[in-house]
Lab assay of single mutants.
Amino acid sequence: NKASVVANQLIPINTALTLIMMKAEVVTPMGIPAEEIPKLVGMQVNRAVPLGTTLMPDKVKNYE
């Protein structure tokens, strides 16, 4: 099972992601793969992401 990116804290809307905000966890359904964490640093979320929520591609601005 592959790990996904999960919010390590509440991430407010329009916040630029940092390493400390994210952790890798095996979750269902799968979100953004954990190996993409370095790519996500500096990207902004387009909505608030509660603690423990899986980061889905549609929650990150300009994620492809």
Rank of each mutant, 00 (worst) to 15 (best):
I32Y: 01
V49H: 08
G31W: 05
G42M: 04
I37W: 05
M43D: 00
P12Y: 08
K59C: 15
N46R: 10
M21I: 04
L19C: 13
N1S: 13
K59Q: 15
M22P: 00
E36H: 11
V45A: 02
V26C: 12
K59M: 15
I32V: 03
L40F: 03
Y63P: 04
K61W: 10
V27G: 01
T15K: 06
K61V: 14
N1A: 14
N14L: 09
E35Y: 13
V5T: 04
P38Y: 10
K2Q: 13
A16Y: 15
Q44F: 15
L51T: 11
G42T: 03
K61E: 08
V26M: 12
R47Q: 15
N46L: 15
P12E: 09
P57E: 03
P33I: 04
K59W: 15
K61H: 11
P33D: 09
E64V: 15
V45S: 03
L19H: 07
M30I: 11
T15L: 06
N62F: 11
T15M: 08
M21S: 05
V26L: 11
Q9Y: 06
I11W: 02
T28F: 13
M56Q: 09
R47M: 15
L55Q: 03
Y63W: 12
K23N: 07
L10M: 14
L51K: 15
M21L: 04
K59I: 15
L19D: 03
I20Q: 13
I32T: 00
N62T: 06
T53R: 07
N1F: 14
A3H: 09
A34L: 05
P29C: 09
T15W: 08
K59G: 15
I37L: 08
P29H: 04
L10Q: 10
L51C: 14
K61R: 13
M21Y: 05
T15V: 10
V41I: 12
T53F: 09
N8E: 04
L19T: 08
E36L: 11
Q9F: 08
A16M: 12
N1Y: 14
V27F: 02
Y63K: 01
N8R: 14
K59S: 15
T15D: 01
A34V: 05
L51A: 15
P57F: 06
N62M: 09
V26A: 07
G52D: 05
A24V: 08
A24N: 02
L51I: 13
P50S: 08
Q9V: 13
T53I: 07
D58N: 11
L19G: 02
P33A: 09
E35F: 12
I37D: 00
P57L: 01
R47E: 15
P38N: 10
M30D: 06
A24P: 10
L55F: 07
D58T: 06
V41K: 01
G42A: 04
M21T: 03
E25N: 08
P38V: 08
V60Y: 01
K61Q: 10
G31S: 04
L55Y: 00
Q9A: 09
V6C: 07
K2F: 12
L17D: 01
T53C: 14
V49R: 03
I13S: 10
D58H: 11
A24Q: 06
V60G: 00
I20A: 14
M21R: 00
K39N: 13
V6H: 01
I37Y: 00
E64K: 14
E64W: 13
G42V: 07
V60K: 01
M56E: 05
V49Y: 05
L40D: 01
P29Q: 06
L55W: 03
I20V: 13
N46V: 14
P50T: 08
S4R: 03
T53K: 08
A48W: 10
G31E: 02
A48S: 12
P12T: 07
E25R: 13
L10G: 07
P57A: 10
L10C: 15
P12V: 07
I11M: 05
L10N: 15
L55C: 07
T18D: 02
A34C: 09
V45F: 00
K23I: 10
N1I: 14
L55A: 02
P12R: 08
E25K: 14
E36R: 09
T18C: 08
P57K: 06
T28W: 14
P12N: 08
S4H: 04
T18V: 07
A48F: 08
K39C: 15
M21V: 05
I13A: 15
V26H: 12
A7M: 04
V41H: 02
A48Q: 13
Q9P: 03
A3F: 10
V5D: 00
V45G: 01
V45Q: 00
A7R: 01
T53Y: 10
P38K: 09
